[in-house]
């Protein structure tokens, strides 16, 4: 076992942090990198807060998975099946979409809420270059895990509809994953989107 000091792979500055975060962010050159076997600099997005988002601001990480999706056959008892097809851009039963997977360590309900909320909502945001000294939630889910969880998000969206899912035949391909920091405000009932 080897223990090394975490340094930015671009500018070689050591990174100091009290938070255990799988995504390492260099304050000096604004580079983010992850470590899995090697050191990989990754692209990431920081979304701008809405001017109306007041209060205790925090950026939470999501893995945004660019995916193509086809429904071949589905059967829902006592309900209808159209939630996914409704938001897919493309042909009637297939197309591309962004699947959002919360990258922090979430409780089950929180995971459901934000993966479905963001994937259904397909948020629009303008980008900014830095975190503007806003606190950053730590990433705890790796890119590989997020890609494996894409299936789960898709089925969850269908299953959470009225009616009981009985059968779903679909194919899903994840093409690309990007770490996206979305703005939130901490409220009494947990996080509120700051978009």
């Amino acid at each position: 076992m080897r223990v090394v000091q975490v340094k930015c792979p671009r500018c070689q500055q050591p990174i100091y942090s009290k938070v255990k975060d799988l995504a390492f962010y260099c304050q000096h050159c604004r580079t983010m990198h992850i470590r899995n076997g090697g050191t990989n600099i990754i692209d990431f997005d920081i979304a701008e807060f809405s001017p109306n988002a007041r209060g205790d601001r925090v950026y939470m990480p999501f893995w945004r998975l660019f995916s193509s999706f086809t429904i071949n056959q589905a059967n829902v008892a006592g309900g209808t099946f159209h939630k996914l097809s409704r938001m897919i851009k493309g042909t009637a039963n297939g197309g591309n979409l962004f699947i959002y997977v919360p990258a922090w360590e979430t409780a089950v309900d929180e995971f459901k809420r934000w993966s479905m909320g963001m994937t259904e909502g397909q948020p629009m945001y303008s980008l900014r270059q830095d975190f503007n000294n806003v606190e950053r939630g730590p990433t705890a889910i790796t890119k590989e895990e997020a890609m494996q969880l894409a299936d789960f998000v898709v089925v969850t969206m269908e299953a959470e509809r009225p009616g009981t899912l009985q059968y779903l035949d679909y194919s899903l391909q994840v093409h690309d994953a990007r770490l996206v920091y979305l703005p939130f405000v901490r409220g009494a009932q947990g996080l509120v989107s700051g978009l």
């Binding site: 076992m1 080897r2 223990v3 090394v4 000091q5 975490v6 050591p14 990174i15 100091y16 942090s17 009290k18 255990k20 975060d21 799988l22 390492f24 470590r35 076997g37």
Partner: peptide
Amino acid sequence: VAEGDNVLNCGYCGSLLWAEGDAGVM
């Protein structure tokens, strides 16, 4: 070093540290 934690903090100098197991094993 705690089990299953790759990211560590040095209690003395506050450096962020990364523990790499042999073949991924801590």
